[in-house]
Amino acid sequence: MRALKLLLVLALTAMTAACGGDDAPPQPTPDPQTLLAEGITQLQDATSFKYEVDVSGYRVAVSVAGLDLPEGAEVSFKYASGTFQMPDRLSARVQFRLGVLSTIAELVALGSTQYFRGELITGNRWLQGEFLPGFEPASLVAQPGGVPHTLSTIRDLSLVGRTDMDGLSVYQVRGRVEAGRIFSLTLGLSRVTTGLLDIDVFIGTQNRRVLRIALVEPPPEWAANSDPTTWQINISEYNAPVSITAPAADGDAS
């Protein structure tokens, strides 16, 4: 019950706000390369995980050829939250902006078969068809090209330090990654394809799992004075029991 939980959370949040201390004894500083390697292994070996992508700063335009849009309106990506189940299943909710308004589309992908629905695009009916042309969930962890592989290509690694990430004790590892390699991280929506981008990876101090990836993408040349696009990718719920199945589709989009 969302409203009940909200009341409970807000009432008790004040009491726990100051409880972020970490009493663990000091430990030797780990090597960033080793830390990242451990994180990559955990991600690669996970049977399932939750993958959340949030974009802020300069908008990430999405091509929607053929859709009749109001004048001045543009479709852009805002947020996606999905669950990946090994080896090739994914369910996700994707939030797009149409002008200043947002709408949500849902996607279930089982191998190369996709189902999708959305208020504006299908009147909330599940349809079978290509929502993301050519996308297969397995590509998220594919070798090469998947998220673990992209993380393994980060160069100039350094350990920023140990920090608190909203109640989670994490190591912050910083480096640079080739823009051409972030396709899987950004669900194929990033603009830049060349050059090096700054990237931060947050790895749990206890479980050594990759919990957050933060990526900064510069704005396009014609909007050089704008804020950069910041991609925040949260990975959680490793190995949680999930069962992603095909929804009952109401029709075929093809």
């Binding site: 959370v9 909203d166 719920e237």
Partner: peptide, 15 residues
Amino acid sequence: SAIARFYRQVLDEPP
């Protein structure tokens, strides 16, 4: 951050 902390530490679920 306090709300996120509460979800993680008290409710044991992602914020």
